[in-house]
């Protein structure tokens, strides 16, 4: 076996450290920026006139990002499961439906999708269905529930179009993950279930999908993390999520670096907690 050359490692490490120090000195002298981190905490929480602690812009954006990601991931899993199953069926019409959806949703830039959904659903369909009106005429407690679960009633139709866009876009990827999972299940499982006279719905519900979801949990977690990150694009239609609040704050305070570093950290906290949770769940699953 070849002996490991520690001397070489040491020299490379030393060069890297020196380069780092030089770079830092160079930036420190050439880059005049006065950091003011002290201004950031007030954007998380503020004290209102009555002396109560209230969430401020950053936290409000954080909540919106969580709500948006949660609902769109949930919807994406439902759409994706359905389309993924269609994609693996024998029937030509089912396969075409699944394939068409996946190809259209996956081969369109999400930013373009968002405009289509915003002007189409947000402006026309939501109005035609009276969703805005319905949200505005809710009782006070109804409005509170709506704000807690989704968004403020007056912005509900925008929130819906953002939710739909993300769900449709991420759903296509989920559908492909589900298809991969379905194809990894032995044919015998389908046959045993058919031979027992179990209906198609029960076959997927009790036998096939539980096995599929266990197999694809890591990929699904990855997709949920993508959804959180991709949710930042809906800032373009003025959904007041984390990125949107960041742009607002930046425009009014010019604390460019502090704000974007803080926002990066907030996204990171969200995604890392999700993947930790998923790892924990994988460990807790019954081994069979």
């Amino acid at each position: 076996m070849k002996k490991h050359n520690y001397l070489l490692d040491g020299i490379i490490l030393l060069i890297l450290i020196l380069a780092g120090i030089l770079g830092f000195i160079r930036i420190k002298t050439g880059f005049s920026y006065s950091w003011s981190w002290g201004a950031i905490p007030q954007f998380f929480f503020r004290i209102d006139e009555l002396g109560h602690l209230k969430s401020n812009l950053l936290m409000l954006g954080f909540y919106t990002t969580i709500k948006l990601s949660f609902w769109s991931s949930l919807a994406a899993i439902i759409i994706g499961t359905f389309m993924g199953i269609l994609r693996t069926r024998k029937n030509l019409f089912s396969r075409l439906t699944g394939r068409t959806y996946i190809e259209i949703a996956r081969n369109t830039p999400p930013l373009v999708l968002i405009f289509i959904f915003y002007f189409f659903i947000g402006n026309n369909i939501a109005a035609a269905m009276g969703i805005d009106e319905w949200a505005r005429n809710l009782s006070d407690s109804g409005k509170n529930v709506l704000s807690f679960l989704f968004s403020k009633p007056e912005r509900f139709s925008e929130f819906l179009s953002a939710l739909f866009t993300l769900a449709v876009y991420e759903g296509a990827y989920v559908a492909e993950i589900i298809r991969g999972g379905l194809e990894s299940i032995e044919k015998g499982q389908f046959e045993a279930s058919d031979a027992l006279g179990i209906s198609s719905v029960d076959k997927y519900r009790f036998i096939i999908l539980p096995q599929v979801f266990r197999k694809i949990l890591p990929s699904l977690t990855g997709q949920a993390i993508s959804t959180i990150k991709d949710s930042s694009i809906v800032s373009i239609i003025s959904i007041q999520e984390l990125t949107f609040q960041g742009m607002e704050l930046m425009a009014s305070t010019y604390l460019v670096f502090e704000i974007w570093i803080t926002i990066t950290a907030m996204y990171f906290v969200l995604t890392i907690s999700l993947s930790t949770l998923a790892t924990f769940l994988e460990g807790r699953m019954i081994k069979y």
Binding site: Q189, A195, G197
Partner: peptide, 18 residues
């Protein structure tokens, strides 16, 4: 209906592993 009345045993068992 037929599948309800006809049981089948496979070479590879095909028990549901979960």
């Amino acid at each position: 209906e037929i599948r309800k009345e006809v049981g089948m045993v496979f070479q590879s068992f095909n028990l549901f592993p979960h």
